[in-house]
Design a binder for these strands. Structure first.
Length: 345
DNA sequence: TGTATTTGACCTAC
DNA sequence: GTAGGTCAAATACA
């Protein structure tokens, strides 16, 4: 956690080992690519931190600010290191869940039906055959700040959503609104999101995304190739201005024993929008860290480090999922250039 | 008239 | 039993 801590970084060889391990630990192509992506992403973050660290050392950032930055970098580095090791252990451990074991919306025995065709035992099943509670779907949260209370900006992230419900939530000051993709029926797009105004801050909205966009809109809103250009991707602010997309925080399973341990290993992702290749993300904002962004924790993550760096307030968070399934939104890897961004692979 | 939103009821997970 | 998530009829709006 401090700048003077022993260097626990895995060597590049170790990272490669993690990669190899991830590969060998999968027989399903989906899991394969997901794990590839996880390792790739982690390695990329690590590399970024290394570069930053080197840059700081070279420029000799002065005194207090520099010290603080170094501490922050050190903390980030350690977190990523541990995350990589976790990724390794997840797929390499004998008892690690095998590919295909996590629940899969696509693989549900009840899938293939239509809304009308939902059987009587699960009347509330949606078009994918999922019952009303979509516990098994990948989900992740973001926080969006608006300029005024009147703003409905959080509802407009570039995708077309239809509101299908609203619910008062116990203990919450404001009701939670439920949205699903407008093209749910026409294109069988099962993405949905929940929007809730934060209790303490009426300008802040917690947005939880569920499932993946598979609609054509997703394709048209795929991330620009900013990975090459270095540009920051932002969801299209088609509506009211002043939206400030904070972060994507994958919401992992909260009741898995493994999670408890992993929660002690904070890390943050530097991922691209996962909408590409019909994966989750649904146009959700990416988690690159633009200057001035504020990363905040989801309910299931444990803040580890909060530091103030000029223009950047970062709260490193961790999240996980015992079976990695909930990370599908960010791990699927149909995009080949995803790998190209890694120096390790 | 077609589409979107509202809202009470229903269903499921915990 | 309760809370959260979804459905679907009613309603509003363009």
């Amino acid at each position: 956690m401090n700048a003077g801590s022993p260097d626990i970084r895995p060597s590049e060889g170790e990272v490669r080992g993690a990669w190899k391990c991830l590969m060998e630990g999968s027989s399903s192509s989906d899991r394969y690519t997901e794990r590839c992506a996880l390792a790739t992403e982690l390695a990329q973050v690590l590399d970024t931190v290394r570069q930053l660290e080197a840059q700081m050392g070279a420029k000799g950032i002065a005194d207090d600010g520099g010290e603080r930055c170094r501490a922050l970098v050190s903390s980030m580095r350690s977190s990523v290191d541990r995350s990589i090791h976790i990724a390794m252990s997840l797929c390499c451990a004998p008892g690690a869940p095998g590919p295909g074991s996590p629940p899969s919306a696509e693989g549900s025995p009840r899938s293939g039906g239509s809304d009308q065709g939902a059987d009587s035992r699960c009347r509330g099943a949606n078009a994918a055959g999922q019952c009303k509670k979509r516990k098994a779907l990948p989900k992740w949260s973001t926080q969006v700040r608006v300029n005024t209370v009147q703003d409905v900006g959080p509802l407009d992230d570039g995708f077309s959503w239809r509101k299908y419900g609203q619910k008062d939530i116990l203990g919450a000051k404001y009701p939670r609104a439920y949205f699903r993709c407008t093209y749910r029926h026409t294109q069988s797009c099962h993405a949905s999101k929940q929007v809730q105004r934060a209790d303490g801050d009426p300008l802040l909205f917690d947005v939880v995304y569920h499932g993946n966009h598979t609609c054509a809109q997703c394709n048209s809103l795929q991330r620009p190739r900013h990975a090459a250009s270095g540009e920051q991707w932002q969801p299209q602010p088609a509506g009211a201005g002043g939206q400030e997309v904070s972060s994507i925080i994958p919401v992992g399973l909260k009741d898995e024993g493994l999670v408890k341990g992993l929660l002690e290993t904070p890390f943050s992702f530097q991922s691209k929008p996962a909408c590409a290749a019909d994966t989750g993300g649904g146009g959700a904002p990416n988690s690159d860290f633009p200057a001035g962004c504020t990363l905040t924790a989801s309910p299931f993550v444990s803040p580890a480090v909060v530091r103030n760096v000029p223009d950047v307030e970062v709260e490193l968070t961790s999240t996980t999922d015992s079976q990695m399934a909930d990370m599908e939104f960010m791990l699927q890897l149909a995009d080949a250039d995803f790998l190209d961004n890694s120096r390790y692979f």
